[in-house]
Design a protein around this nucleic acid. Structure first.
Lengths: 352, 352
DNA sequence: ATGAAAGCGCTAACAG
DNA sequence: CTGTTAGCGCTTTCAT
């Protein structure tokens, strides 16, 4: 049996005042005699009193908790976004309930329903699919639960969004490869559902735009049609390996994330091709370790922590009733980090 | 204004029954006429009824939420542990509230107090320091809040623990280097507070034991005394660079985690030494990318997801009142993953 | 098979 | 400066 925990009544009795007075003392509000307050605080401390936030939440209808739903828990990207969210939520004394869809719409539904039932004050979600669960999000909107999408969004829904300008990211990556004299640039995308995410689609669009500007009409996409094997390194390896085994060739690869880039690099090297002399490679995400792979990987950095911060800020604006109607799309700029995988004689500009 | 959310009373009125009957219908419990139940369920659905878990928690004194406190949010290790925890918590319909201490005891205290106030059903904590916050954890124990430590623990406290057998990890890493003919093996540890974590201490102990068995009494530790610079790659780079600049030499490095190993490798290579010919390197954690650095890194793998799962299982045993008194230390075995950084002619045995 | 009523611990309007 | 009272939405005991 859980030992009896002191509550406001316990304190009130012990001190010989009413619960309201205890309330006033603890919250340092209203008119209260300093001496009374002192006594109350002392007794509270001596009893090891801790406020029951569940009771408070029931009464105030605010839980001081926000829900965050990502696609996966272990990824580099979401971990950093989460840090950004926490950076904003913590000073506001808000807890963060995390959950992940694992890419499955049914699971996304079930975790979001759970978060709603727990009465979170708001939701930050990376929707796993741009089509599914429309009704669910619609319901969230109708319930007036503050909602912000991150990383990817559902185009048909009026929901605020914070993410990287992925179109630009795809563009600068591809433009860089073109500038390095490459012409036959493969786009290595990801497993089938992920391929439909707005983030990936827009990276592809940026890639196409850069190609078109260079007079290349034909896209060269590797990936679709292959079985969705995990981990992603493995998937990219298979995809590139298959391509090269068929006797096809390219002189550059733009991988939609760094993990895929690693796999692609291994496959390229396994076929005896040199990076970047024969094939230049660019990734996306700028994971820390991308500076350490061989050769160091050129990649597009996303402001991950800032995405989390901005999303949380937007959410709190809604929670605190300011700008409640406004739907905003905040696109943060990606940044190209050039390393040797795309540029043979590149001096590593990063400090070590 | 938040629109009026339907509750059990709303349903009861609409159907013309009592709240209790609604309860029975929703929970499919007790005797209730099937037809009544049907009507109630229909109305509930048509009103978009969602149970208020806050109210339920107040009444039942269980929140169906567990709190997880790690040192950092973005690390490879904790992200995977978190996944393991979620794997157990999700099927049990429990939410996971996350927080992190960032290595600061004061922050650890504040987040744990917040989780207590939110009345989580249990806590999984990687305590940031083996000495600080003793009173806090003591208080948690007195309040009978189920508690499990992961990754590291506080030796003076009777609290269940799940982690890697770090002594063994340090031992097999060092033994491997000795087997490869190395004699002068540096232990590259981490920033000052981290250095005191039981996990790091035990890796060091394993390192010493292996050395002693080989007749080497002198440990060679790099790190202490240097300023705690982040990121860790950078820290290790500085530490090793300094050592080599002083004209000191070693023929192997055992780094206490993979990130440190990457930094050490860069520094070694910057000094024109070859890996592994001149210096063999072993890391700890087996991050995915360790297979892709140059040369691929030999490292000690921890069963991260399993640590999370076991910890959560232990916690739920406590929560569900089974084995409530038992304090257990579960040590999971680490595994050496040999790659080229320690073994020149090593055939990569991993599938790609 | 159904209902009435109490209570979880807090907040807040109102009274004195 | 302090107290009374009602109620947040649910669960649970006891009655019918």
């Amino acid at each position: 049996m859980r030992r009896h925990q002191a509550n406001m009544d316990t304190i009130a009795q012990q001190v010989g005042v009413s619960k309201t007075t205890v309330y006033r003392a603890l919250h340092n509000t209203g008119r209260i005699h300093p001496a009374t307050r002192q006594r109350i605080l002392e007794v509270a401390r001596s009893l090891g009193y801790r406020p029951n936030l569940v009771a408070r939440s029931l009464r105030t209808r605010r839980t001081a908790t926000i829900g965050v739903v990502t696609v996966g828990l272990t990824g580099w990207f979401y971990a950093h976004v989460l840090e950004g969210i926490d950076k904003v939520a913590y000073p506001k004394q808000h807890g963060v309930l995390i959950a992940h869809s694992d890419g499955y719409p049914e699971r996304e539904r079930s975790v979001i329903e759970m978060l709603i039932d727990k009465r979170v004050d708001g939701l930050i979600v990376a929707p796993c699919d741009p089509q599914e669960n429309l009704d669910l999000f619609q319901q969230v909107l109708e319930m007036q639960i503050p909602l912000v999408f991150i990383d990817r969004y559902i185009p048909s829904l009026p929901v605020s969004f914070v993410g990287t300008n992925n179109e630009e990211g795809g563009y600068i990556a591809t433009k860089h490869l073109l500038d390095m004299g490459r012409r036959r640039i493969a786009f290595v995308s990801t497993a089938s559902r992920e391929r439909r995410a707005t983030s990936v689609i827009q990276r592809f669009n940026g890639y196409r735009r850069a190609l078109r500007e260079a007079g290349i009409e034909e896209a060269l996409e590797l990936g679709p049609g292959m079985p969705d094997i995990l981990p992603e390194e493995r998937y990219a390896y298979d995809v590139v390996d298959q391509f090269l085994k068929n006797g096809s060739r390219f002189d550059a690869v733009f991988a939609v994330n760094d993990d895929l880039a690693y796999g692609a690099m291994r496959a390229i090297q396994a076929h005896g091709l040199r990076i970047p002399e024969d094939v230049a490679v660019v990734g996306f995400d700028n994971q820390d370790t991308s500076a350490y792979v061989s050769p160091p990987l050129t990649t597009v950095a996303q402001p991950m922590v800032e995405i989390g911060e901005q999303a949380a800020k937007l959410l709190f604006e809604r929670i605190e009733q300011r700008n409640s109607a406004l739907v905003r799309h905040i696109l943060l700029s990606p940044q190209l980090v050039v390393r040797e995988s795309s540029c043979a004689n590149h001096k590593n500009t990063q400090e070590v």
